[in-house]
Design a protein around this nucleic acid. Structure first.
Lengths: 245, 245
DNA sequence: GGTTCTCATCAAACCAGTTTCATGCGCGCC
DNA sequence: GGCGCGCATGAAACTGGTTTGATGAGAACC
């Protein structure tokens, strides 16, 4: 059965201890799963917002297009993430979801949240906190987009991605896979593919990173953190005010 | 007594009908109030995240600074807004809060949310939805910052501000006060005060807007909406999945 | 093994927005 | 009423990132 090791439970139990009833609620969410090939479009901006997806395997990203073709990637999704969460508030989804490689997703209807809110104030508070924490992450990204130059933005992205991967894989070192094209990275950071290429070459030449295939190795992480004034928003959350169960 | 007309109740009841018990919970939140002069700093990034504030009167904004002095304004707050909401998830606040003019705030401890989560699943779901809707708003802003030029960004900001003001003041026309300096607007949009000045002059010359003191009048709102592919995220939310009470 | 396609890199002209400094208006303050 | 200051505007040099088009390497597909 799926769910015997649930990415979602892994990710959430990083923040609060989950008892059996909590796990039961979450298991109900991850009961079906589906595979998608690389570069597949899963839904499109404007579609009715009905389902959410827990990522079980692989990378995806969400983006919006301007009418004239300019594109902004707004979120890069990893295993354990809940994809489509912001659109729960609206009747129609606001972004297009596309796979970066082969992925496996667990879809569930957003009406499943109703049960959680009725039965577990504690889990509800955790969901709110995750939504609010994600707002802080968007604020950090906004700061990078508004006030950082190209090199700082690239470094910021690398630090953010690796911090997120470390939540569920604490054994992770300073190396990660980066299965995105330079055009996709450019659309994420508000730059061009040409300049992303130049910036990566520069970072490599200056000894900040090392690349091998689609792998990236951060060589002087402390310097990179200083360069971007980076702060890890994923490691600690304030759960002190949460209700008991 | 304060609370006889609560900005917060006004704003929330735009989305769901609030019964007496809901109103009682919210009234508990707005029971104390405090005034601040213009250009006052209310809290600073790094302070412990203890209180939230409901805005009763006046404009404020939240910002972060980079170590070298670059500044990013991340949110502009109006009456009815809950200020500091994203920081509920964290132990320390991530932004600095400053008044743009004289304001009146109702502070309340974030532990007050505990009662709401224990006693009203419906109000809890609304809080989550607002947090998620605000994520969508940040995503829209991110798109503007990443892929729009200066003129489009300014127009986007004007449309967003007026859409938010219309929630609580449906009688509002196409004119609003804009009590922000051009430097503050520049720090919000990732531009410079000089270029904000040039852009406003250009918009005025091209007949898109008209300015009088700190008032802005949108002359051809449909054209402005087309120019930025703007969508109002405040008008409708999907509350269909909310629990009963 | 050749064809095709995607992707990273290179190069050079170009431009949107920055930087810096000067001017002038309006407002609060003594 | 005059002083000082914050703020919008103007002008000109400058630059970080864009645009366009060419090249080459690797992977997928018959």
């Amino acid at each position: 059965m799926p769910g015997q090791n649930s990415c979602l439970v892994d990710k959430l139990s990083h923040y609060i201890r989950l008892d059996d009833s909590h796990r039961a609620h979450l298991a109900g969410i991850e009961k079906s799963e589906r595979n998608y090939p690389a570069s597949a479009e899963i839904y499109q901006g404007g579609d009715p917002a009905r389902d959410l997806y827990v990522v079980k395997r692989g990378w995806l990203f969400s983006y919006t297009d301007l009418p004239d073709g300019r594109r902004q990637v707004v979120k890069i999704h990893h295993p354990g993430d809940i994809v489509g969460f912001p659109d729960v508030a609206l009747k129609h989804v606001t972004t297009t979801l596309r796979t970066a490689e082969e992925v496996c997703l667990c879809p569930f209807p957003k009406s499943a949240l109703d049960v959680i809110f009725r039965e577990s104030p504690r889990l509800s508070a955790l969901l709110l906190s995750i939504a609010l924490r994600d707002q802080v992450v968007f604020i950090d990204l906004l700061r990078a987009m508004g006030r950082m130059n190209a090199q700082e933005r690239v470094v910021y992205m690398l630090l953010d991605l690796i911090a997120r991967l470390r939540i569920t894989n604490s054994a992770m070192t300073d190396t990660m896979r980066l299965p995105l094209t330079q055009s996709q990275i450019a659309d994420y950071l508000g730059l061009t593919n040409v300049y992303i290429s130049r910036t990566f070459l520069r970072l490599e030449k200056d000894g900040y990173i090392q690349r091998t295939g689609d792998g990236v190795h951060l060589l002087r992480e402390d310097d990179l953190i200083d360069m971007t004034d980076f702060y890890d928003r994923y490691a600690d959350m304030d759960t002190s005010w949460f209700p008991e169960n």
